[in-house]
């Protein structure tokens, strides 16, 4: 789990570094970033309500602030915002948000606002990368930092799968089907990307996804 959290954190650092160092966000999907902000805000509503550990609270805080920061760069920064590929980043996010919300309203563990929003965030996270993957496919010569960002982000949920298997074997009564199935879907969505990423990495070439 620690490795999963760290790859998640690194993915965000890599993206912020890319944007800040190159003053460019080309190849980065604003739609995916906005979906992630929605995911973090709806999942971490309990930030001030239930306390698990300092580590958890800090990470939640970092995830919310950093995705807000990335969105701010892409929308407001006078240089960076010019480099955003708005014409290419056209995924219809309503097709991800509404089904996730309806599914969360139907399939959840407890019928309460907090629980439904939490479940919604789990469902939405599993598909939030899709606009980014579509944008990557449309971009010829994806830059290394962007492809590393997507690779790290995909590794995060993959490593969580291992964490879940371990916890399931060692902790009695540890079951969370909604999270597991969503996490499995989330990781599966990256399979195609992983294949081409590792192929280009082995050949020492820039990544370009077949359209």
């Amino acid at each position: 789990r620690e490795a999963g959290d760290m790859t998640h954190l690194f993915s965000i650092i890599v993206l912020l570094l890319k944007i800040n160092a190159t003053k460019s966000c080309s190849g980065v999907s604003l739609k995916t970033q906005e979906l992630y902000l929605l995911v973090f805000v709806t999942r971490y509503l309990d930030l001030f309500q239930s306390y698990i550990s300092l580590y958890n609270s800090c990470m939640k805080f970092i995830f919310i602030v950093s995705s807000g920061c990335i969105i701010g760069y892409m929308r407001k920064h006078k240089v960076v915002s010019q480099t955003y590929d708005a014409e290419q980043d056209t995924f219809r996010v309503a097709f991800l948000v509404w089904p996730s919300f309806l599914l969360a309203a139907v399939i959840n563990q407890k019928l309460s606002v907090m629980e439904i929003l939490w479940t919604f965030s789990i469902y939405l996270e599993s598909v939030a990368i899709l606009p980014q993957l579509v944008l990557l496919q449309r971009t010829k010569n994806v830059d290394n930092l962007t492809s590393n960002y997507v690779f790290l982000l995909g590794s995060y949920r993959g490593l969580y799968l291992l964490n879940w298997i371990y916890r399931c074997l060692t902790e009695e009564g540890y079951r969370q089907w909604i999270v597991w199935i969503s996490g499995l879907l989330q990781t599966a969505i990256y399979c195609d990307f992983f294949y081409y990423y590792l192929k280009s990495w082995r050949k020492n070439e820039r990544l370009s996804l077949p359209s």
Partner: peptide, 10 residues
């Protein structure tokens, strides 16, 4: 509340 019922993951 049992440990596993707490949402202790991120």
């Amino acid at each position: 509340l049992k440990r596993h019922q707490v949402k202790d993951e991120l």
